[in-house]
Design a protein around this nucleic acid. Structure first.
Lengths: 225, 225
DNA sequence: ACCTGAACACCGTTCAAGT
DNA sequence: ACCTGAACACCGTTCAAGT
């Protein structure tokens, strides 16, 4: 039966947990964790701050739910049929890119160890560790080490992401740090001074992957023979 | 010349950056990051909130200074004359214990990558990496990987430290997580379920050290031959 | 059942005024 | 130079009142 078209008025589609979380992600991506406010969020949803509390228990849950949406979307759908090492690398890189796109999840992941998003990553890592042939008692340590490394990088990236939207910003930032390191007291910071120039031309993503490979090499070495 | 004794009245010793930071550390240790407030801090120092701002630019600097005091005290004075691996293990464990005693530095370290406290740790790690015989181009990666792993564990410990003052609390917490893991959906979380029982009897500190050893093994394997 | 929005109890920070 | 403390511009959260 032909009903009048344009029935979907763009007004007042009902509030829902899903819409709230989606709007929160948008705000977080646009202005960062500090910019997500119940008032801003309410305005974006064309309602009052109180309405949000009917769907969500508070800010902590909201941040958790937002993180879960992004991480779940990232963790699912990896490359099939590759070696365990390849799957781990692929997962790690997808997480790295997700944190690059949504820096706020870096800080969030780090402080929700038992929570669902972190657990999803742990589970994926653990399965591949098992597939790698790591003996049962050593699997927990291997998976935890990979996870902690990933969370460590995530937290640092989240902290560094402050004012770096463009590639230009990023280059300037690295140049600045590199210059600062090169000027450190040679007696107190000989090593840091020595690697300062490497920092200028370094690729975060490649560096992150090299760290993953280092841990994987350690896992392989520890249960060889 | 004999002046009246009891000249040092216990009243009004002048405010100073040092006293402020010290008081902040005390509050942070007692009630955590959420409990550190300029009003609480001012009361503890028997002054008004505004007075603190003459010595310290804001809360961020205050947290940074507090972290620096604790980390510097921890980083200095390691065991001399041991192998590079031993020195790294020793440094890592001292940091672990410091974070255990002051959980707030876990979160703080993670979000101050270029800052002095993190840099001090990076420098120490790097020197030992060099002493390990790692070739120059690989040193940055090796030191960064160790640092990221340490920061990752630090962040998780900071997040977990919420309500666990006593050993009892800790055990209950692990039992709870272990039970929760054992009840996960077998299809979605086979690995996590499988390691659930290991978690109950696990030693955070030993586990942390095992992760360090895994990375060290990877470093050794990667530049062998 | 769900939404509204004023109100509450806090924050970090500023600043005129004091000594 | 250093301190005081009221005041400002915000928060997250609650809740009586509406529909």
């Amino acid at each position: 039966m032909a009903t009048k078209a344009r029935r979907t008025e763009r007004r007042e589609e009902p509030l829902s947990r899903e819409r709230i979380v989606e709007a929160a992600i948008g705000i977080l991506d646009a202005v960062g964790e500090g910019g997500l406010t119940f008032r801003v969020l309410a305005e974006r949803l064309a309602t009052g701050p109180g309405a949000i509390y009917w769907h969500v228990s508070g800010k902590e849950e909201l941040l958790g739910a937002a993180t879960e949406v992004v991480v779940t979307g990232t963790v699912l759908g990896g490359a099939g049929g590759a070696s365990p090492q390849e799957v781990i690398r692929d997962l790690a890189l997808r997480l790295f890119d997700a944190i690059d796109a949504h820096p706020w999840i870096g800080g969030q992941l780090a402080r929700s160890p038992g929570q669902s998003p972190t657990l999803q990553v742990f589970e994926r890592l653990g399965r591949q560790v098992q597939a790698l042939g790591v003996p049962r008692p050593a699997r927990f340590t291997a998976a935890s080490t990979l996870l902690s490394y990933i969370l460590g990088v995530a937290g640092q990236n989240a902290a560094n992401a402050h004012g770096q939207e463009s590639e230009q910003d990023r280059t300037e930032f690295l140049d600045g740090v590199s210059a600062a390191w090169a000027n450190l007291d040679p007696d107190a910071y000989p090593f840091t001074r020595d690697v300062a120039e490497q920092l200028r031309e370094h690729d975060d993503r490649a560096e992150f992957l090299a760290g993953i490979d280092l841990v994987l090499a350690g896992i392989a070495a520890s249960h060889a023979g």
